[in-house]
């Protein structure tokens, strides 16, 4: 997953990831890519379009 530099770490993507794979740090986002099923739910919900596969 590519996290764009304008991500604001709001955590909305983490709340909807059905597999709970997104760790939201104060100033960082970490994906557990291994478990990712590429459902794109996190990408679609982002209020500022900051995620790209």
């Amino acid at each position: 997953m590519i996290v764009k530099e304008w991500c604001m770490y709001c955590g909305e993507c983490a709340g909807v990831c059905p597999r709970n794979l997104i760790e939201v740090r104060e100033l960082g986002l970490r994906f557990n890519e291994e478990g990712c099923k590429d459902c794109q739910i996190c990408i679609q919900i982002c209020p500022v379009d900051a995620l790209e596969k």
């Binding site: 604001m8 709001c10 955590g11 909305e12 709340g15 909807v16 919900i45 209020p47 500022v48």
Partner: peptide, 8 residues
């Protein structure tokens, strides 16, 4: 200010 976030 710009604020963003999710509301369940």
């Amino acid at each position: 200010e710009l604020n963003i976030g999710g509301d369940p």
